[in-house]
Design a protein around this nucleic acid. Structure first.
Lengths: 347, 347
DNA sequence: CGCATGCTCTGGATCGTTCCAAGACAGGGT
DNA sequence: ACCCTGTCTTGGAACGATCCAGAGCATGCG
């Protein structure tokens, strides 16, 4: 078991070890690693051979100390809410880890407290920043009133947001977001093409600007076809129970033939109501969700859902991060991506 | 906005700054932080005041360099498989982050390659280890033939496994696992109490020792009550489609009144078959899953599922990690926790 | 009074890397 | 021959913390 990845009995080799072996100075080895074009070709080859032979890899702590950078990106994680369908962050995190690595960064997870209140996370950000544990942050919830973005801005801490700065037109930080209105429009238009006219909307409460964005897609799609929307919209909490109740009321009062929901969680609530009444999703009543969660993918008969391009979001986030930390100051403050619709049995 | 968390215009204060302000040497400040009982009480107070006034926090890179430790724990993340119900790792990760923090560690995410093959991850482990980027690893898949555990053992790299070392009785590394047999037993016994006798098992292929463990609980529960199991078991891939086919075949050939599944994913497959045939879960046929995923929590009419104590697993993992990295060598090589059964409408 | 003892505190060295300024060397123009 | 320019390489200093050995200073004992 002694391949290229050799074992180190005591301590890993250092820059000095490589330098001695290659017959050059420490700095030359450092240059070979970080600025190869500064070396003459034969010197470079000699050093690279020594590096390979010894299995040298720079010590992170030393490098971090000298360069005043940790090459780590802090990612706060929220408590995953039980009973909701929204574990989609998985895809985002995975892609973020991958694209970060290609940019020379690793992802550090942290959480504030167990309370889940946004304010309680600030000390955690502060500690990481002050102890130079991370170079930048990725924040994922920029809902109205979320203090993190403002706080980080005030601190001049580098960060990229997944989500538009809804509340602050003055914000100058880079952000990446998904066009929720486009998603709502796609789902609604799809249902119209399937022959539906009485299409109901179940979304979040009005103070959720993300929810209002998605809802705008629904009303835009309806209005552009001159389909009336009166009495067909409902705004509730993002829980299965709320979706269940809202859909029951709507069925009784407005007789829709299809539901467009602001989340898979709400859509699952609709499926509950349909099951209660012996109706079949996709047969008697059409339903679409949002987020393309694993629930949407596995529930019978399959839930049509708007899929967010989370992989692409992560790539853009890292791109923005590089612009923030590297030399070239990025010009684009924000990037807006378009989701896709995954059609399944429920519509 | 100038509270305790002051802003640093240029660079954060260092040990030397605190020392000067408190009128002591650097080393004394260091001791005040790391070994407070070495200082006289009044000196300690004086230093602590200076620390608070300056908002001092030790520079991680410098500390890491000197102590030859990163205070980071590496956690490999797998590509979340689309179309399966198993996003339960969320709970584990969150709890791991929390308990790590209490132990003075942070969690660093990494992934090998996009290929998803286990072997391809080894270089990633190797890099992190050689560059002293992490102090230890937490590995989560210890299925038969998984090379990581053996490789890490061979490297003498500190790590804790979530999952028993099925394949290697010689393994001496600490591990934490959940008693799958107990879970299978609980689900089966629950169904027996509900009056079922013809209870079928849908599990994974025989080379999955985790699956065999869970299956053992089913057969134990059946056997202890002298209920025959012949023809009632099926072993397939862990996909919705497989669960769907397997349950269809079992229904035709063995006429079970209940299904115990090795995963929520398979259980969803059963729900598909029931929907296909106009049967109602929990009414005509009972179904139980495994993992208590968000799918189980939200699908109508609610999927009864075995819930793994992932929060507790993470706590035990960190405890083992502390034993591994700190002074006291832990005595217990392994910890086995018991799951619980969450009963919902499907049974 | 001398000296050992224990408690506090200090200054220098060190971890492994990169920054900085300058040295060595070869080639080209006058 | 001379100097100058540019390429390539070098040694010393620095990043900010902890380790180590020892200094200062009471106290206690013979």
């Amino acid at each position: 078991m002694s391949d290229t990845m050799s074992r180190f009995p005591v301590t890993p080799p250092t820059l000095a070890d490589v330098a001695e072996r290659a017959g050059v100075s420490r700095q030359t080895v450092s240059n070979a690693v970080n600025n190869p074009d500064l070396l003459r070709e034969d010197t470079l080859l000699r050093v690279q051979r020594a590096i390979a032979e010894l299995g040298y890899l720079p010590n992170r702590a030393a490098r971090n100390l000298r360069t005043r950078a940790s090459h780590l990106i802090g990612l706060p994680i929220k408590a995953a809410e039980e009973g909701t369908a929204n574990a989609a962050m998985d895809r985002f995190v995975h892609s973020l880890v991958d694209s970060s690595r290609e940019a020379g960064y690793h992802v550090l997870l942290f959480s504030g407290t167990r309370t889940g209140k946004a304010e309680d996370e600030l000390p955690a950000y502060d500690d990481l920043l002050r102890s130079t544990a991370v170079d930048a942050f990725v924040v994922t919830d920029t809902y109205l009133g979320n203090p993190q973005a403002a706080w980080l801005n005030d601190r001049r801490a580098p960060f990229v947001a997944f989500g538009r700065p809804w509340n602050d037109p003055e914000a100058r930080h880079p952000w990446v977001d998904v066009d929720g209105a486009a998603g709502g429009d796609m789902a609604t238009s799809h249902l119209v093409e399937r022959g539906h006219h009485r299409i109901a909307w179940i979304g979040w409460r009005k103070d959720s600007l993300l929810g209002e964005d998605r809802r705008a897609g629904w009303s835009r799609a309806m209005r552009s076809r001159d389909i009336p929307t009166a009495g067909l919209a409902s705004r509730v909490e993002d829980t299965v129970a709320s979706g269940r109740e809202a859909s029951a009321v709507l069925l009784d009062e407005a007789r829709p033939t299809a539901f467009v929901c602001a989340s898979d969680t709400l859509a699952m609530g609709v499926l509950h109501t349909l099951a209660d009444r012996g109706l079949r999703a996709g047969h008697d009543i059409a339903v679409t969700g949002f987020d393309d969660s694993q629930v949407a993918q596995t529930v019978p008969p399959g839930l049509t859902s708007v899929r967010l391009p989370l992989e692409q979001v992560a790539i853009e986030v890292v791109r923005a991060l590089e612009g923030l930390l590297g030399a070239p100051p990025s010009v684009a403050p924000g990037v807006l991506l378009t989701p896709t619709l995954v059609v399944r049995g429920s519509s």
